[in-house]
Each structure stands twice: as structure tokens, then as C-alpha cells.
Design a protein around this nucleic acid. Structure first.
Lengths: 224, 224
DNA sequence: ATAAATAATGACCAACAGTCAGAAAAGAGA
DNA sequence: TCTCTTTTCTGACTGTTGGTCATTATTTAT
């Protein structure tokens, strides 16, 4: 049946059109000030039709969050394969995350606002499930990097890899959120350079993770 | 004028009654599902009167956030004076924050949800300003601890104190948010023990901050 | 006792998320 | 090409809720 396939494609592309419109509106006016009527008319649809494709306003927002986390996790994968050494993999993942936050700051905000007061994450939702899958993928990429690093000697082996992964995720989320916040402040209120905070974070994290018996210069790294 | 003073006291206590009611409702039903009518009737007030004391629903929420951060910053002060050594001060501050998150988890959630999609922090608001003041106080308590630690030798002096303060704040926010999230999951989904993540965090942070020339055992600390 | 000021009320309004009966379009079968 | 069925689309409508305001009640000052 070629027809039902085409219909599926059309449905998917319609969903994407809606998300395109919603994205622009959410990013420029914010979640609260964007109405479903706004989104509908921007996507050249009636409100009723909009609700055929997304069952609530939150669901639309989740759709954008899914785009965001898919982008992020793919950047993590690219960073992962950039080197064979676990330590460098992790380093590159950190830089990828920083790049994501700088280049796709709106996406970053969406992701960090997901666990906010006004969104119910407990509802059953296909999109929310896919977000969870990507989240797990991100965690796996990091854990794998750590395990590989422990094997090749570039990361100290006496910590639990999974625990370290969660610690790094938690810490970096906090650091990126703060950088994001500071970036939105007027220049004269910015008490520090965002990039500098990130650099210090990387430095401190890797200071904790490095293996004292490993020769980092051999793999082209200078560590203090 | 004793009368106007009494009136001011009454107004303050009325505000507190409202916040008491609002707190219970927000904490049990969530922000979205709590209506201003709910709060009004729970505080035995008409809606119009409620709006005499708080000019919006957000403002009520800010009022609760103010209670939260006042509590947190006072716990920080107590931790600060618990020792003379900067390193121990910081350590106690970290533990105080952990205690706050465990004992006042609802307050913690309020604070971490403040920078969420659905709240406009740019509006002019007296309460929001007071929150800012307490936030600065917290930052100052931490920065002072660091500076004292650098003076007494318990913290390595080759880092910028203010930058370190922001890094610690950012990291711990991230870590506590993750712990909070995990705590809300059903036990079988919890991949790690919250306390353990916190311990590892403290360990890694202090590993970075410690001064190699300082004898920690002399002040009763065993560091690995 | 009366006027002035302050506090409280609840009916009312506008905005908005979400619904649904019916119209329009697309597809299948002849 | 015509007709019946299924799918897609529509926009008027509903219920809820944040916020307002003219009016009433209470307190204070004279």
C-alpha cells in the first residue's frame, strides 16, 4: 500500500511544520504567552486540526524537547567516536555539550526547563518516552567512555563508572544552566566569563578523574 | 502611632496566613492545579482580598520561594560559623545544603523551579528583590569561606575565589536537582543511592580544592 | 455622632486550553 | 463518472481560571 505510506509521511511532515511554527513562537514569546491559536494560525491550521496532531500544549513542547535531545545525543555520538581514548572521548563530549548550549541555546533552555513546575512529566506520552530513550543513550555514551577510559588507563579505575556518569551529568547540567542564566544578564552584571567557568569546570572534573599512572602527554594532552 | 504599627503587623501576619495556605496547596496539588480561588477559600478570604496582599499568582509563589531561600541562607550562616577553618566551613555548608534538600524538599523544589519556563523573573517585584538579596548573601557566605580557607591554608590559593564559588553553586545545584529527581522515582528505578552521589560530589569537589601543603589531620580531617 | 479612610467582597470579564458536531476532501468500488 | 465510505479538517462553543472593580462593611479620626 503506497498510499498509506505516503499518508504517514505527510502526517510526519505536518507534525514537523507545526513544530517549526511552535518553536518560533515559544522561543520568541515564551511558553505562557504562546497560545494554541497562535500556533494553529502560524501553521495555517485550524485549532481543531492542531489537536489532531498534538493532544495538548505540553505535547507540542515535548515535541520540541525531543528535537533538542536528539540533536544533543547525536553530538555526543560524534564526540564519542572522535578518539579512541576514554579520557579524550569524555573531554570531547563535554565540549560538545558546551557547543550545544552556545549554538542551540533555545534548545538547551527547553531541555533544562523540562523538569519545571508547570509541566507534568508523569503523563503517558509517546514523545516523552522517546525523550527518555535519548536520555538513556546519552548516559550510555558517557558511561561507555568512562569504562573505555578505565580500560585504556586514561581514567582512574577506582570509581564506579555509572555513578561518575551521573555525577558528571548532574554537575554539567548545573554549570550549563548557570552559564545560560548569566548569558541572559546585561553585560555589566556578568561577574564572570561563561567560557571561563566551563573551562574551570572541565579542569576540576578531569583533575578528579585522571589516572596518576597514565602518561597524558603521550596522547597529546597537557594536564596541570 | 501604635495603630499603624499594629496594622502593619496585622498585614504581615495576614500575608503569612495566605502563604501557609498556598504552601499546602502548591505542595500537594502542584502550581498549575492550584487556583487563586483555592488559595482564597483555604485562607478564608475572598479572591479580591487575596489580590490586595499579592498582586498575582506568581507573586504568591515568590513569597514561598522567599521563605525557602531565607531558610537556606540561614542554614548556610550556621554552617559558616561552625568552624574557623575555611575548608571545614565550606564542607559544613555543603552538608547544610544537603540537609535542606532532604528536610525541606518542597522548598528545594520551589527554588530549583524558579528559573522555569512558566515564571517571568524579569518583572519588578519586591519579593523577587529580597530573594536576590538572600541569593547574594549565600554567595557571599561561600566566597568568604573560600577566602578564609585560602588565608588559613586549608584551600589552595591559586584559584579565583568568586569563580570557585559560582562553580560550586552551579555544580551542587545540578547534583541536588538530580538527587531530588531520583528520590521521586520508584525505588526499583533508582540506579544509585542519593547520599552516595552527594558524598562522591563532596569528595571530588574537595579533591580539587585542597591544598597539598596543608595538614588536614591536624584539624581532624581524613582526606583520601 | 459623623465624616473620612481603609479593608473586604464577589459578581464579572477576557483569555485560553481543549471539544465536538458537522463540513470538506480523499479514496474505494462500480 | 457517479456514489458510498473513510479520513481529514473546521471553527463555534464550553469550562476554567487569573485578574478587576464598583460596591459594601469596618475602622479610625474628628
Amino acid at each position: 500500500m503506497g498510499i498509506s505510506e505516503r499518508k504517514l509521511r505527510e502526517k510526519e511532515s505536518r507534525k514537523n511544520n507545526i513544530l517549526d511554527s511552535a518553536e518560533k513562537l515559544f522561543f520568541s514569546k515564551g511558553y505562557r504567552d504562546t497560545t494554541m491559536d497562535d500556533i494553529a494560525s502560524s501553521a495555517e491550521l485550524s485549532k481543531g486540526t492542531l489537536y489532531l496532531y498534538f493532544k495538548s500544549k505540553d505535547e507540542v513542547y515535548f515535541g520540541i524537547a525531543l528535537r533538542a535531545i536528539v540533536k544533543l545525543s547525536s553530538m555526543f555520538r560524534v564526540a564519542f567516536i572522535s578518539s579512541n581514548f576514554g579520557f579524550i572521548k569524555l573531554n570531547e563530549i563535554g565540549r560538545a555539550h558546551y557547543k550545544f548550549m552556545m549554538e542551540y541555546s533555545d534548545y538547551h533552555k527547553v531541555l533544562s526547563s523540562l523538569s519545571s513546575i508547570d509541566i507534568d512529566l508523569t503523563i503517558a506520552s509517546d514523545i516523552l518516552m522517546q525523550i527518555g530513550i535519548n536520555n538513556d543513550l546519552i548516559a550510555k555514551t558517557m558511561t561507555d567512555s568512562i569504562l573505555i577510559g578505565m580500560q585504556d588507563g586514561s581514567i582512574r579505575p577506582d570509581i564506579n563508572a555509572e555513578k561518575l556518569c551521573y555525577l558528571l551529568q548532574a554537575e554539567s547540567n548545573g554549570v550549563f544552566d548557570m552559564i545560560q542564566q548569566v548569558k541572559c544578564l546585561p553585560k555589566e552584571y556578568q561577574k564572570f566569563d561563561p567560557e571561563e567557568l566551563f573551562t574551570t569546570f572541565l579542569e576540576s572534573a578531569f583533575y578528579y578523574m585522571k589516572n596518576p599512572n597514565f602518561n597524558y602527554e603521550e596522547i597529546g594532552l597537557k594536564l596541570n
